[in-house]
Design a protein around this nucleic acid. Structure first.
Lengths: 210, 210
DNA sequence: CCTGTGCAGTAACAATGGTTACAGAAGTAT
DNA sequence: ATACTTCTGTAACCATTGTTACTGCACAGG
């Protein structure tokens, strides 16, 4: 655990802070598909992601889903921080997109470290910053892009975070993430295949030239 | 200025912090329609809103606009904080929706006060929290609602922040804010009028029963 | 009073995306 | 092998939203 932590955060946090994190944090290893946070949950800790990818989703009252963004190693969940600080329910769902390792830090420490460690302060503010911008990008794509562009963006982003140009998803999976319908996604994917940008298979998609 | 500041922030910030704000902050009074921040601006200070309403907009490369949310008295702009801290360009535009009074605080103070004053810390984190949730709501409405619902929400929200059940906007204004077209908005407004929810006039709309 | 400008109403049409329905292919279990 | 389930392909159709075009009205300025 210390090994992992140092590898990921050693260059930005000083020794003393790392040690504190190790002392109070709880290590967690979760498999792909594991649900870390459900909408409405009260959160007891703040997650520091060490490896893997976490997918952050929004869902409305009718059960319609929408992918907000991915967390990658070195990221934390600003939403979670916001929830913890405000002591309110989670507005989002978090699912492990791949196997993942993370450390949960009790929320009380957050404020203490904010005062004590400048790097921690920077880390926290930077997280908020990054997440706000991430949300803005998501908003842009929904507000200003058409479904075909959003689909291309989705495939690219997913390939990037998983570091794999084979997308292991069904058309239905993609439809959920983009809040569309399976038929629409199949239609658009077929067009992309005809354009030579991807190759379709059962249960996976090979990216050629997006 | 001190009067205004105390009235708005006196109950959450202690005397000493108020005094510091007065010392280093610059008071600003702007008229309706004044552009406070343009996309791409580098920001030198963080605004504390004392009175009035500020409208925060997003715009894409093609010049398509979208209203994100309103800032009201007692609010600050998390986006601005994020930009200042990260020393990056503004991602949004800020326009005074009504005449407004605000205090600009140099960004260097922000970190200093974060360490020194607990209420300031709470204020800053709470602002991020509120803003993240505001963005999520905006995202919800775009992703999950149809235009007629969005329009009703828009009218309600605008009436709330301006504290006026007469909306002083043309159909074109509304179309810009909702990133739609004038014809579509006119069509939907007419329907709302037929349902007896609003009364249409030239240059303004009277809300009856939304 | 006349005229120009901006605002609103409306019709016709296009484009995008969502829905329903069905067929066949691929994989799984018996 | 057979039956069952899941995934994909495709067609036909519908709903919503956006676009173009034209109308008349209101108001301001001469």
């Amino acid at each position: 655990m210390i090994q992992d932590l140092k590898e990921q955060y050693g260059n930005i946090f000083e020794e003393e802070l790392i040690n504190e994190i190790v002392q109070v944090g709880t290590f967690k290893e979760v498999p792909e598909g594991y649900k870390l946070i459900e909408i409405g949950d009260y959160l007891r800790g703040m997650p520091l992601l060490i490896s893997g990818v976490i997918k952050i989703l929004r869902e409305d009252d009718d059960g319609d889903e929408l992918l907000l963004y991915y967390l990658e190693k070195g990221d934390t969940c600003s939403m979670t921080m916001a929830c913890c600080m405000g002591d309110t329910k989670s507005e989002i769902r978090a699912i492990a997109e791949t196997d993942a390792k993370l450390i949960m830090v009790p929320i009380q420490k957050m404020e203490e470290w904010t005062i004590k460690y400048k790097p921690w302060r920077n880390f926290v503010f930077n997280s908020y910053h990054v997440r706000l911008n991430e949300l803005l990008s998501t908003l842009d794509s929904i507000a200003f892009q058409k479904m075909d562009e959003r689909l291309i963006g989705y495939l690219k982003e997913k390939a990037r975070v998983t570091n794999d140009d084979i997308i292991h998803s069904t058309h239905q999976d993609i439809a959920y993430d983009l809040h569309s319908s399976r038929v629409v996604i199949s239609r658009l994917l077929k067009k992309l295949e005809e354009m030579g940008k991807i190759k379709l298979h059962r249960n996976f998609i090979k990216i050629l030239d997006l």
